[in-house]
Amino acid sequence: MPSRPARRIAIDPQGPILIEGPVEIVLADGTLARSDRFMVAVCMCRRSRAYPWCDTSHRSRERAVAPTEDGRPR
């Protein structure tokens, strides 16, 4: 039986796991999620609205402070 080429996986401690696609993921409830993209970001923080795919919800959200009328920051 011929061996398949290994998948390359990159782990970012502050973000998702990146996997060379295509990818099929079996979720805890038994449903199958599939992506045919060449690179797939799999969510590890479980905050993604598109779980199991990463939507960058792991990034800290900071509001930009609008400058005052004279152009200086508040």
Rank of each mutant, 00 (worst) to 15 (best):
M1C: 02
P2F: 06
P2I: 13
P2M: 11
S3N: 07
S3I: 08
R4A: 11
A6D: 09
A6Q: 09
R7S: 13
R7L: 02
R8L: 10
I9C: 10
A10W: 01
A10Y: 07
A10F: 12
I11T: 07
P13H: 01
Q14E: 07
P16N: 05
L18N: 10
L18W: 15
I19D: 02
E20P: 02
E20D: 15
G21Y: 00
G21L: 00
P22H: 06
P22A: 03
V23E: 00
V23D: 00
V23C: 10
E24K: 09
I25H: 05
V26R: 15
L27V: 10
A28I: 04
D29W: 11
G30K: 12
G30C: 10
G30S: 09
G30T: 08
L32Q: 12
L32C: 14
A33K: 05
A33V: 07
A33R: 13
R34M: 09
S35C: 07
S35R: 13
S35N: 08
D36E: 14
V40P: 00
C43R: 00
C43A: 06
C45M: 01
C45V: 07
C45P: 06
C45G: 06
R46D: 01
R47C: 02
R47G: 12
S48T: 07
R49F: 00
R49P: 00
R49A: 12
A50N: 13
A50E: 05
A50K: 13
Y51Q: 01
Y51M: 05
P52A: 10
P52E: 04
P52Y: 09
W53A: 01
W53C: 06
C54Q: 07
D55W: 08
S57T: 04
S60G: 11
R61W: 06
E62K: 10
E62W: 09
A64T: 15
A64G: 10
V65E: 15
A66H: 12
P67R: 15
P67C: 06
P67W: 08
D70I: 01
R72H: 15
P73N: 07
P73H: 13
R74T: 02
